[in-house]
Design a protein around this nucleic acid. Structure first.
Lengths: 233, 233
DNA sequence: ACCTGAACACCGTTCAAGT
DNA sequence: ACCTGAACACCGTTCAAGT
């Protein structure tokens, strides 16, 4: 099953792109996206790369480093996806929406963002860009950090909540009613059969919602509450 | 190493309390609290209960059920710890603070709350109590759910952020300055050595804060933004 | 320098066997 | 009914060996 021709010296038939840290981490993220976090196994990852599990240790010091590397890829994606704008409200909102988009694009990998004790460089750069916008808007440093932390907490928390328990009825899709029925059905099926009807009703009220609209509702409220222009009464 | 006398028929010298689902789950939570989530192993848990790993399957269908059972214990603790009060602002704030307290009391187990697709009965009861308070305060059902979801997202997200990356300088403790220096030191030591100084500075700005004060800042802003009494301008 | 095979200690889970 | 011992398939990781 092993192919011996790794990097053909010949005419660049490109038999395989040669193993690198980047390729290992990229494939790891893809594996997690497709099969879940617990499917990420040194042996499985090696298999996808056409290599034995032990070869990975030449490019990555261990499984923990694999997790950290994936988190770094996510931060990089966030940094790339949220462009700086001068208006602080729009900037911070874009940051929050970027975090949520990250959670939707990589639901299986998203929890890894919180597994690291401190964010890697791309994450810190994204933070810095927000802090600069806030300072330029006139906030002092401490207040700018307050705002950033609050928004970051709300966005990532809501994203995790959405991944775990909120049934999604997508806004932009056509035939919203159908998918409403679908999520209602899915929720009913996922509840324990012996749950008292009153509690099942609570689950329906809490879980069935337009997740995008709800995200905006909370974010809008948070920003309004943080806005100094609103706080003089 | 095995003791054969499990439940002595004799004079109730109480040789061991007999294995039950409750005892298994309680010990599982204690194990996670003390040694971390990845230390939770059927064999290790059995060892703590003076039993072989396979005996656990008589009371719990598998490891996944162990995780779900722990999450249920946490929801139960939350439900017990937050008492209903008529004022909806105080009620919702108590709920948020209960969530954060849960994260601080069980940092290793807290992420399990999000591992379940839908909350178990004690969680739904806690939700119901909040919804009732909000409805009694005059909010219609959809709006009540909006508020609850927003607060729940903020509180749990901030709690996870706090666990993962915010250095804590506890408010209530005496000698706050000392622990400030400690967390500064710990942060500096945990950053990668080759991190550009400008980014290390960003990390300091973002990570070093009074976590309790910050939690209140964001929560206050969110509640102010959600408050209909504030939104007429 | 990079990849491999074999090995080690450990995991969740099954099952026949004990009492 | 509940607990056990042995077994199975599978982990992460080490290390000597190959090229």
């Amino acid at each position: 099953v092993a192919t011996t021709a790794l990097t053909r010296g010949r005419g660049r038939g490109r038999p395989r792109p040669a193993l690198t840290r980047e390729r290992v981490l990229g494939e790891a993220l893809r594996l997690v996206d497709e099969e879940g976090l617990e499917a990420l196994t040194m042996r499985a990852l090696g298999g996808r790369l056409g290599v034995e599990a032990m070869s990975l240790y030449n490019h990555v010091p261990g499984k923990r480093a694999l997790h950290e590397g994936i988190a770094e890829l996510l931060w990089t994606e966030l940094e790339r996806s949220v462009k700086p704008v001068p208006d602080w409200r729009r900037s911070v909102r874009a940051f929050a929406e970027g975090l949520r988009r990250l959670a939707r694009d990589h639901p299986n990998a998203f929890p890894l963002l919180f597994a690291m004790r401190v964010s890697p460089a791309p994450g810190l750069r994204a933070f810095r860009s927000q802090l600069e916008t806030l300072r330029a808007a006139g906030f002092e440093e401490g207040r700018a950090a307050d705002i950033l932390r609050a928004v970051c907490g709300y966005a990532s928390g809501y994203a995790m909540l959405e991944l775990s328990s909120l049934s999604v009825s997508p806004t932009g899709e056509r035939e919203g009613e159908e998918s409403d029925l679908d999520s209602l059905w899915a929720l009913a099926r996922s509840l324990p059969p012996d749950l008292p009807p009153a509690l099942a009703e609570v689950a329906r009220t809490v879980c069935i919602c337009d997740a995008s609209r709800q995200f905006e509702v909370g974010l809008e409220a948070l920003l309004a509450g943080l806005d100094p222009a609103r706080n003089m009464l």
